[in-house]
């Protein structure tokens, strides 16, 4: 069911991190697990993730900081906050910064999977919309270009 969705999990609680990662892998997610914010941000910079599950209270870089960086640098990656220290002010803050959802530990598996699915759909729709816009723009600007040039551009869009 995971359809090889690329997902990163960031949590300083290693036991939790690894178990959740394994469970998601069983469901065919492509999971990368990070036990601190710094490593997660570096990974996010080097490659694109579809989704991110981020804990808030962590030593070193906090979940809020990770969220902010990801949303700035990878706006299409949907970030889901999963924390034991949930509070309304913190939820409001994270939502404003751009998290897709704000979940409290312990979270039911079905609920988490549902949220992941919806988040992925949203990402896909956003990507589609962007691709579509790009395509239209390209079509507008590439009238009169050679078919080979158009194909090259299309390939660029798919990559981006």
């Amino acid at each position: 069911m995971g359809d090889n969705i690329r997902i990163m999990i960031v949590d300083d609680e290693e036991r939790f991190l690894n178990t959740l990662a394994q469970r998601l892998r069983l469901r065919d997610f492509d999971v990368a697990a990070f036990s601190n914010g710094q490593e997660a941000v570096e990974a996010a910079r080097s490659r694109e993730f579809d989704l991110a599950i981020v804990d808030l209270k962590m030593p070193g870089m906090t979940g809020e900081q990770v969220l902010e960086i990801i949303k700035n640098e990878r706006p299409l990656t949907e970030v889901i906050i999963l924390t034991g220290h949930g509070s309304i002010p913190s939820a409001v803050h994270c939502t404003q910064v751009g998290s897709y959802n704000y979940l409290q530990k312990p979270c039911e598996t079905d609920e988490l999977l549902e949220v992941l699915k919806n988040a992925y759909q949203r990402r896909v729709q956003k990507k589609l919309k962007i691709d579509q816009e790009k395509m239209e723009k390209m079509l507008d600007t590439s009238l009169g270009e050679s078919p080979l040039g158009i194909l090259r551009r299309l390939r660029d869009i798919d990559k981006g």
Binding site: L26, K105, P106, E108, T109
Partner: peptide, 17 residues
């Protein structure tokens, strides 16, 4: 109450796994 969520989350995930 928050602190206790962490072990609970571990239990939840381990049992789920």
């Amino acid at each position: 109450a928050h602190e206790i969520n962490n072990p609970l989350a571990i239990i939840h995930e381990e049992a789920g796994l």
